[in-house]
Amino acid sequence: MDFLAPTSWAEALECKAAHPDAVAIAGGTDVMVELNFDHRRPPALLDLNRVPELADWALDDGRVRLGAGVPYVRVISELGHLLPGLAMAARTVGSPQIRNRGTVGGNLGAASPAGDSHPALLAAFASVEIGSVRGTREVPVAEFFTGVKRSVLEPDELISAVLVTPPSGPQQFSKIGTRNAMVIAVSAFGFALHPDTRTVGTGIGSAAPTPRPAPEAAAFLAGELEAAGLWSSRGALPATLATEFGRRVRDAAAPIDDVRGSAAYRSHALSVMARRTATWAWDAYRDENRSAA
């Protein structure tokens, strides 16, 4: 197996163009497991740890540009205010050791339906910045995933960053596992209120072949909030509305039975998580108003 170790982004893209079957590796928390279990034997690894352009985040033209190589531990410690949903998701990733090494870019690259970042990024309407020697493009996260562990990435492309607009409202993330830490999601849900556009963001994890939003449920909730004047009045979220939102999120999923849980349980859990996270976020939105008053 070849080991390619570029030291700049330009060099990394050249490497990927020259070795399109090379597998990009950052923290190695996914790739090395696959190698150790002999699930894949790539002809080459493309190590991105020495590429400085991936290693940081910054506010860029009003958006957060999160370098693909920034580990979860930094998302938690540095970005709780700018990417609150993602930071909550990052706290649920593996163990401290995994959070020290694992990256959001790597999570996207693996494109697992169970990736913890994905529901939070979907709810926040984030985009993925993708580069190649041919140039740079930006793909909304909702369009990034194409199948189980498949994405829109072309063989010569690498993920350079995630682009997210700072939140205009509260965000939440919730994940089901059968133990209280260090567990792969049985199902997960990301939720974001976007008061600036009076929209709602949603993200479903581990309950369909790909991470996916629940656009109909999101539009329903935003519309009901609008119709009842709640965006302005910041009145309480009616329990029936939260429950109906949960039901519609559940209907947006397409879960399967597997060793981690049954399809029926996943659907049920999604409806509960959607109801609860929406309620928590809305209560926080109401609290903002109170503290501002």
């Binding site: 706290r91 919730s174 209280n180 609860r276």
Partner: peptide
């Protein structure tokens, strides 16, 4: 939340 069922996965703030 780490003292609650679900722990760091943030599934309840006491509900249920």
């Amino acid at each position: 939340i780490r003292e609650l069922p679900g722990g760091a996965s943030n599934t309840t703030h006491g509900e249920g």
